[in-house]
Computed example of a mutant assay.
Amino acid sequence: MKYTVYLSGEIHTDWREKIKNAVNEQKLPLEILTPNTDHESSDECGVRILGGEDNNFWKDNKAAKINSIRHMTALQRADIVVVRFGDKYKQWNAAFDAGIAAALGKSLIVEHATDITHPLKEIDAAAMATAENTEQVIEILEYLCRDY
């Protein structure tokens, strides 16, 4: 079976690359989808494409709407959504993606450190699996791809 997997969540570590490398090395039948992980281009795409804004609300609004085209398309296409919560920033966008994935009935895998379990308890409750590290996420994906 081939799955389409959307890797949502924090963009400040190399967790996506670890998963992509494992998928390639093991030739797993997975199509990987990602958001734009270049912070500057993601934040600036609205004003760069549609013109400047004096108010940061409208600048962010333009960027969010353009970026949501990619996010929503990926969420709708995905069979599995992996959402990683990092420890550096509050990732409201990751929580939003997890909620949309749950509402769409997608299989949801959540990854985060144990010290933020309490604030993410509702998201964890909606997940099919909650991993503490990327290696566990990789193992779950490997398991799903095995023929038994």
Rank of each mutant, 00 (worst) to 15 (best):
K2Y: 04
Y3Q: 01
T4W: 05
T4K: 10
S8D: 09
G9L: 05
T13S: 09
T13M: 00
T13G: 09
D14P: 08
W15K: 01
R16D: 09
E17F: 08
K18S: 13
K18T: 12
I19E: 12
K20I: 08
K20Q: 15
A22W: 14
V23K: 04
P29M: 02
L30M: 07
E31C: 07
P35C: 11
N36W: 01
D38H: 11
H39K: 11
E40N: 15
E40R: 11
S41T: 09
S41H: 00
S42T: 05
S42W: 03
D43A: 12
D43V: 13
E44Q: 08
C45V: 14
G46C: 13
V47E: 15
R48W: 08
R48H: 14
I49L: 15
I49D: 06
E53M: 06
F57V: 09
W58G: 06
W58Y: 15
D60L: 12
D60H: 08
N61Y: 14
N61I: 08
K62V: 02
A63R: 00
A63T: 06
A64I: 00
A64L: 05
K65L: 01
I66K: 03
I66S: 04
N67T: 08
R70Q: 00
H71K: 01
T73V: 04
A74T: 09
Q76E: 14
Q76L: 08
Q76C: 06
R77C: 07
I80Q: 00
I80G: 00
I80T: 00
R84S: 10
Y89A: 03
K90V: 13
Q91H: 14
W92I: 14
N93H: 02
A94G: 15
F96Y: 06
A101G: 05
A101R: 03
L104N: 04
L104Y: 07
G105H: 01
S107D: 12
S107C: 01
S107P: 01
S107E: 13
L108N: 04
L108S: 03
I109Q: 02
V110W: 00
E111A: 13
T114A: 14
T114F: 09
T114H: 11
D115H: 14
I116Y: 04
I116W: 10
T117Q: 11
H118T: 12
K121F: 08
K121N: 10
E122F: 07
E122N: 05
D124P: 08
A125D: 04
M128K: 10
M128W: 12
A129T: 09
A129K: 03
T130P: 08
A131G: 00
E132L: 11
Q136R: 15
E139F: 08
E139C: 11
Y143I: 03
Y143M: 11
C145N: 12
C145M: 06
